[in-house]
Nucleic acid binder design. Sequence first.
DNA 1: TTGAAAGCGCTAACAC
DNA 2: GTGTTAGCGCTTTCAA
Lengths: 338, 338
Amino acid sequence: MPQRTKRRPLTLRDVSEASGVSEMTVSRVLRNRGDVSAATREKVLTAAKTLGYVPNKIAGGLASQHVNLVAVVIPSLANLVFPDVLSGISAELDDTPLQPVIGVTNYSLSREESVLYDMLSWRPSGVILAGLEHNRSSRAMLEAASVPVVEIMDIDGDVIDTAVGISHLEAGRQMAAEILGAGYRRIGFIGTHMPEDHRAKKRLAGLEEALQHAGVPLVAREFYQGGSSLAKGRELTERILAREPDLDFLYYSNDMIGAGGLLWCREQGFDIPGKLGLAGFNGVDLLEGLPMRLATTDARRVDIGRRAARIVAGKEPRPEQGKLSLAPHFMPGDTIRK
Amino acid sequence: MPQRTKRRPLTLRDVSEASGVSEMTVSRVLRNRGDVSAATREKVLTAAKTLGYVPNKIAGGLASQHVNLVAVVIPSLANLVFPDVLSGISAELDDTPLQPVIGVTNYSLSREESVLYDMLSWRPSGVILAGLEHNRSSRAMLEAASVPVVEIMDIDGDVIDTAVGISHLEAGRQMAAEILGAGYRRIGFIGTHMPEDHRAKKRLAGLEEALQHAGVPLVAREFYQGGSSLAKGRELTERILAREPDLDFLYYSNDMIGAGGLLWCREQGFDIPGKLGLAGFNGVDLLEGLPMRLATTDARRVDIGRRAARIVAGKEPRPEQGKLSLAPHFMPGDTIRK
DNA sequence: TTGAAAGCGCTAACAC
DNA sequence: GTGTTAGCGCTTTCAA
């Protein structure tokens, strides 16, 4: 085994010495800035490659007073929706110098605060974060950061700088219209325990508002804690139907539990969508390939990621009033009567 | 709208002036280093909070010559397995000063190289990256970085510094033993097109080796490109059974396509596990809640994340030979005969 | 087209 | 327990 002395990390100076070109010019070459003759350029590039030099962005960032990072703060990676948002962001950032850095809050506002603090201490060029609900310190930090801040997923509420998302209130209303239009009248809702999930809460509010407007009460609600899974969907569906056997429609707060409910109902021999209609929310890919396609609302996740990234990157202007509202898109699937 | 002058970002100096304490002592307080009297401490903290000061880690990192970041490089976030690995990493890093920074390669070695280059330019304290297959430049960079490098998921191959994972060869052999032990003899394999997926390739090799050893040939293979989904699983299952209708076992390279196959086979009325056995790989949560539990191998994702993080954090020593091998765990489910 | 000087905001090392 | 000094590795600015 070779005696592996702990190398001093390489610096610009090493490349400068190896190439016989000043540090400044080496720096120019490595960043493609300013005019450098082809010959010097070549020398520098060769030297850098030979040495295996990797520039130190810490020093660079300090000197230039800016850093090409975009802080992206989301509640969870386990939730199927966020990878989609991230892929939209990456796609749009790919042809810019900006790079996303992901932080995860686990749906906790205080964790969000500390994640933001850590990320802002790297002085990113922009921030993208999920939701409009943040604690006071987080809002203060974001305002003090004086970089673009884009809140995503939701537009129903107060915006710090810019919001890109759908109206979940509207999504709830839209679903109510579809449910009522299809003739269902005894409707139940299944969702996460509310304090944590502001967007589901807004959808429920939109649903109830529209139902009430039509004189149709929401018959039952069932809430759960923790992550979503097919198993949870089965369990909650069984429970709500045990309590209220004559329900004719179940609106789930996400596709995963909706799919679990769907599988369970089919096994029980329910007539879907004839006697019982079902709908979820998000429009995740997972639904393709289930025995029946669950009705759902496409929450425009990839688009949201893209547009947010475009705004942070300066590819498109900040929308008027700071809100960019995308339209939630109802997808009928096979689990709601035509 | 208030005239919002572009503020100069706050510095230590501002806190120093506001509190009447030297910059150095302010720095000490903010980092909990060295002895500072309770009184000064209080003054500093108050001043910092009032101003809304967020330390500049770029400057800090440059001065201290180190940065509490761990680069985590994975192929994809859409793949259900990586969020699990990441949660293991986070869990173990949570009580250390280290923070994970995620980079995504989209299963491309050249993209891996550029992601590594970018991450190493931040001079992280350690690197965790998926797989043992990297291009020459990537290996060179990692070796030159002189920080702990932990390759995860796989241990069948050459290690740069440390590897934490399971043997996929062994997982394939183990599955072969289970399949043969249950009496299946006409076995097919369904998986991703190989060049991209080294670990699936190793499982297939392990499977074939063990089958061959028992004098049982692998009857059919079906490969696909792109992401995994239930729909893809259905499609491939239909195709392989159209070609080879007398197969009595299907081994899938992951649970998602396995689950799709399972759903399809049930709809076709196949007798599972009687006439046809099925197994996937990974042991993802998704499987709970399907009509039948797919047989699978638990790939120890969370444990892998934890152990890798522990090694990077110095909580546990680098294993001998640089390889930490966890045992893949067969889970029979309901789709293989007892 | 190239180079020299100054300094980004913080912390290590040492003095008091 | 607190302060002073020097300097981390780059880029900005300006001069040549």
